[in-house]
């Protein structure tokens, strides 16, 4: 008798759990509008993610559920790998596509259109109590971050005898991030060549906290993270080729004065997928004059100049495929050079 009761209880338990699950699922029925909606799959860099997320959100609201958009964060490399297998409509990347990735795309028969969408400015930051340094030039930055500096440049006074004789605590992007690739390329002259004895993190919030709590810190990360924490950080100006000390800002980045640390970020669009109405509408929405400046500024990035956007739209509308952001040696070129605006 007791066995029976036990069995019944066990069966009851299982049944209850199932019912609960079914009820919860039934609860989400009303939103099951996904039956016939077109799906746009986007994946790629976590740096570009906030822009794409904001655009996708606004776009879906505007389309009222006719088109669904998903956005992932597999990183620039991971996103482009999927893209070149033909799994994505759009890949976003915080660096231009590489030659090996282009070969992968070609092998799979994927043609793509390369669209620069905004700038990110890598920002150099120190603790707000740091009074001894206002700006740095590229040579000094190289002296700090190049691989040979490891274990040798460890004190502020190593850079300049006027600086305090205190340890130089470095915070920077981790080797899995596009920021790291770009910073090492333009500062150390060699992509991915960097000293290793610094606090490295792919999570910029950790870097923010590190620099904000360390009087002798020097760090670099994306501009959006500086803007959100500007009360606990101090940005350094970077001395560009013309010899001017320039702080990162909308004008200095757009005008090309904040060099070499401002970089374009990209969307790569699969040409075949462009035949889908939804993808085309998403791109039209993205590059609508109001959206491209307002939304991109809102999420903390810097929109391209209006003239530059017109050139980008030309590329899109004429469906001109291929990449133009690396020179023959594989070095990244500026937006102006790439789009022949100079």
């Amino acid at each position: 008798m007791e066995f029976l009761a036990q069995k019944r209880f066990a069966a009851g338990c299982v049944l209850c759990l199932l019912c609960l699950a079914v009820l919860m699922l039934a609860g989400c029925r009303k939103a099951g509008s996904g039956q016939s909606a077109e799906l746009i799959q986007i994946d790629g860099s976590s740096t570009v993610y906030p822009i794409i997320e904001a655009m996708a959100e606004e776009f879906q609201i505007a389309e009222q559920g006719a088109v669904n958009v998903t956005v992932g964060i597999s990183g620039s490399g991971g996103g482009l790998k999927k893209f070149c297998r033909g799994e994505l409509a759009i890949a976003n990347a915080s660096r231009p596509i590489e030659a090996s990735e282009i070969r992968n795309c070609q092998r799979a028969g994927v043609n793509f259109i390369e669209l620069p969408i905004a700038y990110d400015a890598i920002t150099l930051v120190v603790h707000p109590h740091n009074q001894w340094v206002q700006s740095l030039d590229v040579a000094t930055l190289k002296q700090i971050w190049e691989p040979q500096a490891q274990g040798r440049v460890t004190r502020w006074s190593d850079l300049n005898p006027d600086f305090p004789d205190a340890s130089l605590n470095l915070y920077g992007a981790g080797p899995d991030s596009g920021t790291f690739d770009y910073f090492t390329a333009v500062i150390n002259g060699d992509e991915r060549a960097s000293r290793g004895d610094y606090t490295a993190s792919e999570d910029d919030n950790i870097l923010v906290r590190g620099v904000a709590n360390d009087k002798f810190a020097l760090g670099y990360f994306g501009l959006a993270y500086y803007h959100e924490n500007s009360n606990q950080l101090k940005a350094l100006a970077v001395i560009n080729q013309q010899g001017n000390a320039v702080l990162p800002s909308l004008d200095s980045v757009r005008g090309g004065a904040y060099q070499p640390l401002s970089r374009p970020v990209f969307m790569y669009v699969n040409t075949q997928m462009l035949q889908q109405k939804g993808v085309r509408r998403f791109l039209d929405f993205f590059f609508a004059p109001k959206n491209r400046t307002e939304i991109i500024t809102w999420v903390g990035y810097i929109p391209l100049a209006e003239a530059t956007y017109e050139r980008v739209l030309d590329i899109l509308n004429q469906e001109r495929t291929g990449s133009r952001f690396r020179d023959d040696a594989g070095h990244v070129v500026s937006v102006e050079q790439a789009l022949h605006l100079l």
Partner: peptide
């Protein structure tokens, strides 16, 4: 490769019309 931004739900497993149950949601992002 789970996604991060997804502002719609998979098709509900329980439907109002025959056969009342579907498995399309298994394939959903």
């Amino acid at each position: 490769g789970a996604l991060t931004f997804i502002a719609f739900l998979p098709e509900a497993p329980i439907g109002g019309e025959f056969p009342y149950i579907n498995f399309n949601w298994l394939d959903a992002p």
